[in-house]
């Protein structure tokens, strides 16, 4: 590491235990995820023996064909899709309002939006459960969506607001100055500039929703989203190999888009950094 040599003079001694600790923490975070991938291929059906007695690909088609898993996956995708759309609209509106205008209570908007994510999940969950029971709303697909959309708003909001703040203040004014009305300005200038932020926010929101289990437990009734299905499989293991494969699938569905989102956010900040 060149930066280390140039800047650290007395820190060399501390570096070894420190490196050890750092590498240890990273391994601690990642090794369990690797094991998920290993166990998806174990030949064993009813235990978690390590090392696996043998490896096989046979569970993958079986898991993908499992009807309970399929319907849970389908429900999760539909919920995540609608929650993401809702969060996109609400989060972008809130971000635009906070960025463009001064108004009473502006500082508390961010605070309120982050509450559902910052408070323990169980608070949001039981609060919604109380509302459902108090005004006798039947559990449905929509109760899950409403719950998810609520805590997804903030990730879209944060992404879009950060992008607004990084872009030149006067871009909108410049567009109007050159003859574009508000709609043209939105279409030609605002949308292209927040596009990647919207995409990144949408991916994060989708992952968040796709993955959520605590709030969903309280708003889903008897329906099973994919995480809830996995959770129930863990409580009463009926079909471990299929759970193992599904777990791997979920990691891929959530983690890969996030990597992609990181990339587009990082990429667009590079080009913006240049124009500042």
């Amino acid at each position: 590491m060149p930066s280390k040599n140039s800047s650290q003079s007395g820190g060399e001694r501390a570096a070894w235990p420190l490196k050890f600790g750092a590498v240890g923490a990273i391994l601690f975070l990642h090794v369990p995820l690797w094991l998920i991938f290993l166990y998806a291929f174990t030949t064993e059906e009813s235990a978690y023996t390590f090392p696996p007695p043998g490896l096989t690909l046979k569970w993958i088609p079986q898991a993908l064909a499992n009807p309970a898993m399929q319907s849970a996956l389908y429900l999760s995708i539909r919920v995540a899709f609608l929650a993401t759309i809702t969060a996109l609209v609400l989060g972008t509106l809130a971000a635009a309002a906070v960025y463009r205008y001064d108004f009473f209570g502006k500082e508390s908007v961010s605070f309120m939006l982050i509450l559902p994510l910052a408070l323990p999940g169980i608070v949001t969950g039981i609060a919604m459960r109380s509302a459902i029971s108090l005004i006798h709303i039947p559990f449905s697909f929509w109760t899950i969506v409403i719950g998810h959309a609520t805590f997804c708003v903030v990730v879209v909001y944060n992404n879009v607001l950060a992008r607004f703040r990084r872009s030149s203040n006067s871009m909108i004014e410049a567009s109007m100055d050159l003859g574009a009305n508000s709609f043209q300005t939105f279409w030609h200038i605002v949308l292209p500039n927040i596009g990647t932020a919207l995409l990144a926010g949408a991916i994060l929101a989708f992952s968040l929703s796709f993955d959520e289990v605590i709030v969903t437990t309280f708003t889903a009734g008897n329906q099973q989203t994919l995480p809830i299905w996995i959770f129930s499989q863990m409580l009463k293991p009926r079909n471990r190999p299929i759970t193992n494969v599904t777990a791997m699938l979920v990691v891929l569905i959530t983690a890969l888009p996030i990597l992609f989102a990181q990339r587009i956010v990082a990429g667009s900040s590079d080009s913006e950094g240049g124009s500042k």
């Binding site: 872009s167 030149s168 203040n169 006067s170 871009m171 004014e173 410049a174 567009s175 200038i189 292209p192 500039n193 080009s271 913006e272 124009s275």
Partner: peptide, 9 residues
């Protein structure tokens, strides 16, 4: 504009 406000995209 002072910061030029060029459209980066």
């Amino acid at each position: 504009f002072q910061d030029y406000a060029l459209f980066p995209h």
